[in-house]
Computed example of a mutant assay.
Amino acid sequence: MKKMLFLLAAILLAVVMYGCTSSNESEGASDDSEASNESGDSQAEKPTLTFGKTPWTSTVPPTEIAKIILEDMGYTVNEKEANLGVVFTGLSENDVNIFMDYWEPQHEQYLEKYSDSVKIVSTSYGDADWGMAVPEYMEDINDVGDLKGKEDSVNNEVLAIEESDPAVKDIPKAVDAYNLDLEMINSSEAAMLAATEEKIKNEEPVVLFGWRPHSMFNKFDIKLLTNEKIPEVLGSSAVHVVANKELEKEAPEAYEFISNWSMPIDDLEEMITKIDNGENPEEVAQTWIDNNQDKIDKMKGE
């Protein structure tokens, strides 16, 4: 009888222990599942972000850098290549979330048009000078006014980029203000630079539309002309990051990062030159990231 009672007690204890073990394993699995779901939900909550990307050389490095950093933060990032008008239309409709290369005052008309849905988030850099430029060997031409009476030496031309770019609209204003016998010749950025390079190779006089940041100042020995008569035209610019106003709510971490964004213009110009010389844009961007991690941590609020 005692043996029977002992056997029953042992069986009961084994059943209880098995039940506790199964319960603990089940709870552990449940906890792991919940943790996995929470992690998955957190990842799923981050929306896909789309950058507007114009064909300008100044747009490429900051866009590549921001893209890499946001991808490291867990976002999926796309790019939409288009001209400025299409980029701003996309920003207004939230099909484009961020644009890294908004110039002020040149592009004010776009921000004014879409101010209900698009806003400036941060300033990349100031003192982005632009205007008419000439080679350094044109020693007697230092101000726009110095071109008066010498227009035929440059074939009565100012070489410029696409007529649709708002920045070049100040060239005719300056020509009229100084009563210069010059005509603006519009073409692509690449065509303008190719024509300039040919002139400089032969040390011929040439006037072109120049702006910083750009590799032209590293590639060519050129100078921007001063503009003493009408300084409100062809003046310095500030370059900003703009975004759709919904970004702060939809992607708060991304918004905090770009709201702290800034970059020295000299760094940007150096990267543009490297890319123009054939280096991979993503590798150039990654090198800048590796060399500026403290700055990036501050942008991310860390």
Rank of each mutant, 00 (worst) to 15 (best):
A29P: 04
N142M: 04
G74E: 06
E282P: 00
I68C: 01
W103L: 05
K300P: 05
K2S: 13
A195K: 15
G74D: 05
N97D: 15
G278S: 07
S92D: 08
T273N: 13
D32W: 09
E269P: 02
K46L: 15
E198V: 04
K249E: 15
D221H: 02
E104L: 01
A285C: 13
V144E: 10
P47C: 12
D294N: 14
F220T: 00
E79C: 02
V284G: 00
V207T: 07
S58V: 12
D152K: 09
A177W: 01
S42D: 13
A160L: 10
E283K: 15
E248V: 05
A44P: 04
N218I: 01
W130C: 05
K3C: 02
L111I: 01
K67A: 11
L8N: 07
A167D: 04
G52C: 10
Y110G: 11
K119Y: 03
K148G: 12
K223A: 09
K148E: 14
K249D: 13
A10N: 02
D129N: 05
E232D: 15
I171Q: 10
V118S: 07
I120H: 00
K229A: 14
P105H: 09
N292P: 00
K3I: 09
V15I: 13
E204N: 05
L84G: 03
E34H: 04
F220N: 00
T287I: 10
A243I: 06
F6M: 08
P47E: 12
M73G: 12
M73A: 15
T123H: 00
V144P: 03
F209Q: 13
N277K: 11
I258H: 01
E189V: 06
N260I: 02
F6W: 10
D294L: 03
G74V: 07
S164M: 13
V134L: 12
G85F: 05
Q106Y: 10
L111F: 07
E93C: 06
D116G: 04
Q286S: 14
P213C: 11
V96Q: 09
P166A: 10
I230W: 11
S262I: 00
S33V: 02
G131C: 08
E253G: 12
E163A: 11
E270P: 00
L193F: 10
A191D: 10
E71H: 06
H214T: 04
G235F: 11
A195Y: 01
F88E: 03
E104C: 06
L182I: 06
T54A: 08
K119L: 05
E79M: 08
E248W: 00
V242M: 07
E282D: 10
I69Y: 01
D276F: 02
N179Y: 14
